Simulated assay, not measured.
Amino acid sequence: MAEISTSKARTIIRKAMAKGEQMGFKPLSVVVLDAGGHVKAFERADGASSGRFGIAQGKAYGAVMLGMPGSAQMARAEQQAYFMAAVNGVYGGQVVPVPGGILVRDKRGNLIGAVGVTGDTSDNDVIAGMAGINAAGLTGDA
């Protein structure tokens, strides 16, 4: 099974944070999970609130566990709230079904993990996350 390397995870975080700073976003927090939902790397910018790890992790965890990005999870929650409530029950309340949870694929299209970004608007979180993923030479599904 393909997996995301620690080096790639660090690149994603570094470049996502840089994109946020460049665009004047609020302080971001970024987590990278492997395909099994385990943390590979995390960073919280100076000034970001301390609770941001849980939000970033929940965005990424929902993406990788369900195989759908945060935008698709949010649409599903709006259409079938009971489904997302059940999913959150299954996963112990760890799913945050909003944009900013991005699936990560390698050059062959294999799912290798997910990125969760939080701190600014969900749309801006996605912009930063995709910049990091692309900089690492990977593909993101937001």
Rank of each mutant, 00 (worst) to 15 (best):
M1W: 08
A2F: 14
E3Y: 04
E3S: 15
S5A: 08
T6V: 13
S7Q: 15
S7F: 10
K8L: 13
T11G: 00
I12C: 03
R14T: 15
K15G: 00
M17G: 00
M17C: 05
A18I: 02
A18Q: 09
G20T: 03
G20I: 09
G20M: 04
E21V: 14
M23A: 14
K26D: 14
P27I: 05
P27T: 03
L28P: 07
L28V: 01
L28G: 03
L28F: 05
L28C: 07
S29I: 06
S29P: 11
V31P: 06
V32D: 01
L33I: 05
D34P: 05
A35M: 08
A35Y: 14
G36L: 08
G37A: 09
H38C: 00
V39F: 02
A41W: 01
A41T: 00
F42C: 00
E43S: 14
R44L: 01
A45Y: 00
A45G: 01
D46N: 14
D46Y: 12
G47S: 08
G47A: 03
S49G: 06
S49D: 12
S49E: 07
S49M: 09
S50M: 14
S50H: 12
G51E: 10
G51M: 12
R52M: 13
F53S: 09
G54Y: 11
G54Q: 13
G54M: 06
I55W: 03
I55S: 04
G58Q: 03
K59S: 02
A60W: 11
A60C: 07
A60R: 12
L66G: 06
L66R: 04
G67C: 15
G67S: 11
M68A: 07
G70N: 14
G70W: 11
S71W: 10
Q73S: 04
Q73F: 04
Q73V: 02
M74P: 00
M74R: 11
A75E: 12
A75P: 01
A77F: 12
Q80F: 13
Q80G: 00
A81I: 14
A81L: 15
A81R: 15
F83V: 15
A85N: 05
A85H: 05
A85W: 00
A85L: 06
A86P: 07
A86T: 14
V87T: 07
N88F: 00
G89M: 02
V90C: 03
V90W: 02
G100T: 04
V104L: 07
V104F: 04
V104Q: 06
R105D: 02
K107I: 10
K107Y: 04
R108G: 08
R108H: 12
L111R: 07
L111Y: 12
L111P: 08
L111C: 10
I112N: 12
G113W: 06
G113K: 08
A114K: 13
A114Q: 09
V115W: 06
G116I: 05
V117P: 04
T118H: 12
S122H: 11
D123C: 00
N124W: 02
N124F: 02
D125M: 08
D125I: 01
V126P: 11
A128T: 07
A128F: 01
A128L: 08
M130N: 08
G132F: 01
G132S: 09
G132D: 04
I133S: 03
N134R: 13
N134V: 11
G137A: 09
G137Q: 09
T139W: 13
T139M: 14
T139F: 15
T139H: 15
G140H: 07
D141M: 09
A142D: 13
